[in-house]
Structure formats: C-alpha cells, structure tokens
Computed example of a mutant assay.
Amino acid sequence: MLVALMARAHADPMPARVLTQMQLSKPEIVSAWLRQHPAGVEEREAALSYQAGLEQKGRKDWSGAAKSFGESAIRHPSPQVLAEYVTANLHMLGEIRTRNGATSLGLDGDMDFALRHYLSVMAADEVLGTLSEREKGQVKANIACLADYLKSRQAPGVCLPFEYYGIRP
C-alpha cells in the first residue's frame, strides 16, 4: 500500500497547494493546476499580494510589484495576475539592464522568460476564460512579437514587452 501511494505521489506532478515560481512559466502545468483549483488556494493571501502588487506598480516599484504579483500567481495564476507578473518583471529586468548594462540572462533570456509567461497567460485563460477579447489580442500580439524576435534576433518594430523592458523602436 505504501509503495502504491509513493508511486502515485511521484507520478502526479501537480503540487498539493501552491505552484512554484518556475512552474508559472510552464503553460501545461498552469492549466492543469487551474483545472484542479479553479478558485486558487490561499485566497486571502493571493488577494493581499495582488493588491500590494498594484500599489507597488503605481509607485513604479517594479521589483516589489514582481514579487507581490508572483506571490499572488503561485496561489491563483489567473490570466490577469500572470500578465501583471510578466509586465512587472519586464520593467524590473529593464531597470537592471539600464543600471548594470545587462541582466543575468541577457536580452534573449529575458525575452524567452517573457514569452513562456505570456504562453501561461493564454493557458490560464483557456481554463478560466477571464480575458477580454482586447486583452487576448494583446497577449497574442506579445507572444507573436517575442517569438519573431527569438527566431530572427531582429528588434521588432512595435512590441509592448520590449517597451516594458525599456527598448523602444
């Protein structure tokens, strides 16, 4: 019996409670988790973290906003929270790039990070269906311009993630 339980626990990749920050960039894990937990977990903490993220975003405290939105997203990765999370991260990484000349992942790594998270936004929306058509269109445009950049290594003409990152065409 114990062996069967251990095998089941090992075979089930879904966490019992909250997601990890790394799992937020894996659309298949986000959508499977949301199917099991459509209302999220630790709702109070998720809401408080989201509200803190909005306040920090208003002050342009991008590092604090990214942390708060991330704390909310691991408890309830709704499309809106994930979109705020990736936007705050791009602003924060852009500030680091400006200050230090580069980030630890570099431009390509940062844009790949953003692409994977925008794909998770769409995966979450496929489960929850909470994005408006305008929001969906913007996320799809972000995915397209990032994918184009990562294939060609040519700076896109108009691409909001690059603008959040501090690079304007």
Rank of each mutant, 00 (worst) to 15 (best):
G129N: 15
K136C: 13
D125K: 09
I143A: 06
D108L: 12
S49N: 04
R99G: 06
L105A: 15
D61F: 05
E42M: 09
S104D: 14
M22Y: 12
A32V: 07
A114H: 08
L146H: 03
E55Q: 13
L150Q: 08
V81I: 15
L54G: 03
C159G: 00
I143S: 04
I74F: 02
E55Y: 09
A9P: 09
A73L: 04
P156D: 03
S31E: 05
A4T: 12
I143Y: 04
A123L: 02
A66I: 00
K67C: 06
T130F: 09
G58N: 11
A88F: 04
L115T: 02
S120W: 06
I143Q: 07
S49T: 08
C159S: 06
L128A: 11
T87M: 07
N100L: 14
Y85Q: 05
V127Q: 10
A32D: 10
A7H: 07
Q21C: 10
M22A: 14
G137S: 13
H76Q: 12
L90V: 08
C159M: 05
E163V: 07
S78V: 08
A83R: 01
A32N: 09
R99D: 13
K136Q: 15
R99T: 12
V158L: 11
M111T: 01
L90R: 02
T20D: 11
I143V: 15
E45C: 00
I96V: 15
A65N: 01
M22W: 13
P169C: 11
F162P: 06
D108K: 12
G64I: 01
L160D: 10
L105Q: 14
R153E: 06
F113A: 07
R116M: 10
L93S: 10
R153A: 11
V139T: 10
R44D: 02
Q51C: 02
P13I: 08
R17G: 15
S120T: 03
H37R: 09
K140W: 12
L146M: 08
S72W: 03
P15N: 10
G70I: 01
G129H: 14
D148W: 09
I74G: 01
E95H: 09
L2N: 12
G106Q: 02
K60L: 00
Q56V: 00
H117A: 01
A123M: 04
C159L: 00
E42G: 03
L107G: 04
